[in-house]
């Protein structure tokens, strides 16, 4: 969160011209479209020997205006990198492939620099993303002392039941749940068209988590595209329109929320395993862990844990449409 000033009226005017152009395009184009995204890291192995670590291999997801899509995946599957990839804030040793389009136009490096923090906002995963040496109020206002900004912030705080005194506190002085609400507040300072929320709710109690999700829902209902990255399938099911299930670097299934009412309407064996692991559906688990990116199996990455796995699962597996959703499994029908 930088404290840069100098957003003159000139640049604001240019932006609104651009905006009208884009509004025309938006009618049919999704706000965000990610195709075949891949992200890999270059690491030093031994001495000067470098290796490449493919964390995301093949990720597809689409978010339309007014829609809330949740990318749900296991911890350690590289979900956060998806957000960082879109925002252009990947670390220097990361390499991104594939295509990202925003409102029908390719989202290049220069473009995201202009848009992030204004039209495209990221709500980060951890309070570690806040500046620990800056008070909450100025931090969210990005140093602006304008009465308007102050008023707006106070309104947002009221919405999240945060005391006005919180503005004068440092991040370490807040409880876990309060910190989270502060992070969500940062997204609402501008009027964003695309909100990417990276794990917005862990550590919030159920009521507040639902309310936080409801606020993202509100943003979607106001016309913004909302992409929520989460491991919390149960919560996502309550508010999202569609769920993209992410496993070991790939999206294995894209399904509507209604498909999750019964196990039979789901398509991929991993999604079904997730469904059965919910406390209300039996709390059953399957053995094993998600494969580490260094030793991914060829073909289907879920194969080692899959009860229906056969020889043909080792080949290339297409992401295809089955019963109105998408699935990356040759056996789904």
């Amino acid at each position: 969160m930088s404290g840069k000033k100098g957003n003159t009226s000139d640049s604001r005017k240019n932006r609104s011209d651009e905006q009208t152009m884009r509004d025309v395009q938006r009618e049919d184009a999704p706000v965000l479209k990610i195709e075949h995204m891949s992200i890999s890291f270059t690491q030093y192995d031994r001495g000067m020997h470098q290796t490449s670590l493919p964390v995301i291999r093949d990720l597809d997801v689409e978010v339309h205006g007014g829609e809330m899509v949740a990318v749900v995946g296991s911890s350690g599957s590289g979900k956060s990198l998806l957000a960082h990839g879109v925002m252009g804030v990947l670390p220097y040793n990361a390499d991104m492939g594939g295509r990202i389009t925003y409102c029908g136009e390719e989202l290049a490096k220069e473009r995201i620099k202009k848009l992030r923090g204004r039209e495209i906002v990221l709500v980060p995963q951890s309070i570690a993303y806040l500046n620990p040496l800056m008070k909450i109020g100025p931090q969210i206002r990005r140093g602006s002392k304008a009465t308007e900004a102050r008023k707006k912030l106070r309104g947002i705080f009221r919405r999240y039941e945060l005391d006005a005194g919180v503005e004068e506190l440092y991040p370490f002085e807040l409880s876990g749940g309060m910190n989270r609400r502060v992070l969500i507040s940062t997204a609402l300072m501008e009027e964003p068209k695309l909100v990417i929320a990276d794990e917005p709710t862990p550590g919030l109690d159920l009521a507040v988590a639902k309310r936080a999700m409801a606020h993202f829902r509100e943003l979607a209902d106001m016309g913004a595209g909302v992409l929520v990255i989460t491991h919390d399938l149960e919560l996502a099911l309550e508010v999202a329109d569609r769920i993209a299930v992410f496993y070991a670097g790939t999206t294995v299934e894209e399904a509507s929320v209604q498909d999750f009412e019964h196990e039979e309407t789901l398509r991929h064996p991993y999604t079904k395993a997730l469904w059965r692991a919910m406390p209300r559906h039996g709390f059953q688990y399957i053995e094993g862990t998600q494969p580490y990116v260094k030793n991914l199996p060829t073909g289907c990455s879920f194969a080692p844990r899959c009860p229906h796995c056969g020889a043909e699962c080792a080949g290339e597996i297409d992401y295809r449409i089955v019963r109105g959703g998408k699935v990356r499994c040759i056996r789904a029908e």
């Binding site: 296991s74 491991h231 997730l274 692991a277 919910m278 688990y285």
Partner: peptide, 11 residues
Amino acid sequence: STMLDLITQSQ
């Protein structure tokens, strides 16, 4: 287990 996925949580 707030940061864990359902299967890991159950495990």
